[in-house]
């Protein structure tokens, strides 16, 4: 492991320890919880709870997740290209235009299918 990651490791341990230690400390400071009955139910604006929350959800969320994978992978491909772009010049521009062009066709198809509309 490169030496520069050692401070990050120390920091990560500190960063994880901070909330854990304060949570445990708070346990000894605060009064014991005496909650009973409706106070221990999930909050639904005072109404009796309607079944489990882990039911079925709008497929829109899944479509967004799939679209994210496609477009985020594309962004990740752009990162190394952007770093080395100064050395590649016109050749780098042409190749990336081809790549983005293919993606653009997909984007237009998605748009016309209505996949980008929430409603």
């Amino acid at each position: 492991m490169p030496a520069q990651y050692i401070p990050i490791l120390i920091f990560a341990v500190l960063a994880a320890a901070f909330p854990i230690v304060t949570l445990i400390a708070a346990k000894y400071v605060r009064p014991e919880s005496k909650a009973v009955g409706a106070k221990l139910e999930a909050y639904e604006s005072g109404n009796p709870i309607e079944g489990s929350a882990r039911g079925r959800y709008s497929t829109r969320f899944y479509i967004i997740a799939i679209l994210f994978v496609v477009f985020d992978v594309e962004t990740v491909f752009l990162f190394p290209w952007a770093i080395r772009f100064g050395q590649m010049g016109l050749y780098g521009l042409e190749t990336m235009l081809v790549f983005l062009g293919i993606l653009l066709v997909g984007y237009i198809w998605l748009y016309r299918k209505g996949a980008l509309d929430w409603l």
């Binding site: 400390a25 708070a26 346990k27 400071v29 605060r30 009064p31 919880s33 005496k34 909650a35 106070k39 221990l40 139910e41 999930a42 489990s52």
Partner: peptide
């Protein structure tokens, strides 16, 4: 906030 009662729902 340190001194507040801590409630965890039974179904959680």
């Amino acid at each position: 906030l340190m001194l507040k009662e801590d409630v965890i729902p039974t179904n959680a």
